[in-house]
């Protein structure tokens, strides 16, 4: 039996590579200076979906909500093995928190045929791990979080192993289901050269400026146009989208300031160190 997999992916700033250049003079992060990357655990989700397709047949659709630039990770999904890619982009979706984001994603997913939804356990910019479970709730389907291995897929049932923090569990569910996938589930493949040649000219309409000379109709005919949906296209209720649809708001942002505490420099010799240990014994830090 073949399965339709839909993978929810996100483009994120590479928070692992915060260097001097990415810091503003006041110590805050300059997001624009950080490279935008495919959220790492979303690659594990995509890999699992592609493995399911290879083993059982079916389709893999990658979907992302973001700025037009996020089309880049959709292209990367196509290079790796996705069949279809959808860009959800709309100015009115800006400033959506996880609740609004999951509402918008669920409206889009309702337009698709799916058996298994997959997403990364969490995104490295917010680290919330909320959008997956919230999307599952909105669609009224069960979620299985922290998946580290697919054990069995048979007709309409799935068995996976999930990490419980204190060990693991093997759980069984009826499809459709949403899985959130951990980084140790698999080793994501890189793009395939043939697919790269096939899809390298793929664009989303939002990436095409009128003066670029690119003919959208022509691109579409060749199958090189990414599907692009606005909030109207998915029939989303604007009251639940963007800033208005988001219960959580930012009250304040502070950069992490390193606190200069009372400190002593200890000479790296036996006398200095013995002295320090003595001090710690006297103040009862060491008993």
């Amino acid at each position: 039996m073949a399965y339709n997999c839909v993978v929810l992916i996100k483009q994120v700033p590479d928070t692992k590579r915060i260097t001097g250049e990415a810091m503003n003079a006041d110590g805050t992060v300059n997001r624009a200076a950080l490279p935008a990357i495919f959220n790492p655990e979303d690659l594990n989700a995509l890999e699992l979906a592609i493995q399911i397709k290879e083993k059982f047949g079916g389709t893999v659709t990658a979907i992302t909500m973001g700025l037009p630039a996020a089309a880049k990770i959709l292209r990367e999904s196509l290079y790796r093995g996705a069949d279809d890619a959808i860009l959800l982009t709309d100015k009115r979706a800006a400033a959506s928190d996880t609740l609004a984001t999951s509402y918008i994603l669920s409206c889009a997913i309702k337009k698709l045929k799916y058996d298994i939804l997959l997403c990364g356990r969490q995104a490295i910019d917010g680290d919330t791990a909320q959008v997956g479970p919230q999307t599952a709730e909105k669609l009224g389907i069960p979620q299985i979080t922290y998946v580290e291995q697919l054990i069995e897929l048979n007709n309409q049932t799935i068995i996976v192993r999930r990490n419980t923090g204190a060990g693991w569990q093997e759980v069984k569910a009826q499809l459709p289901v949403l899985l959130t996938v951990m980084d140790d589930a698999n080793e994501p493949r890189v793009g395939n050269a043939k697919r790269l040649m096939k899809y390298k000219d793929v664009l989303a309409p939002a990436e095409i400026t009128p003066d670029s000379g690119i003919d959208i109709k022509e691109l579409e005919k060749k199958g090189l146009l990414i599907k692009q949906w606005s909030l109207d296209d998915i029939g989303a209720d604007l009251n639940w989208c963007g800033r208005d649809g988001s219960p959580t708001k930012v009250h304040r942002i502070q950069s992490v300031v390193l606190t200069a505490k009372e400190s002593k420099t200890v000479e790296p010799n036996q006398a200095g160190i013995t002295n320090m240990i003595h001090e710690l014994i006297i103040d009862k830090t060491i008993s």
Partner: peptide, 23 residues
């Protein structure tokens, strides 16, 4: 913010249409 809390809280927040801040 345990594995159980992070699995449960977003599901409740979505059903209750309420806000949730992680971690």
């Amino acid at each position: 913010a345990s594995p159980v809390g992070r699995d449960l809280a977003p599901r409740v927040a979505s059903a209750a249409k309420a806000g949730l801040t992680a971690d």
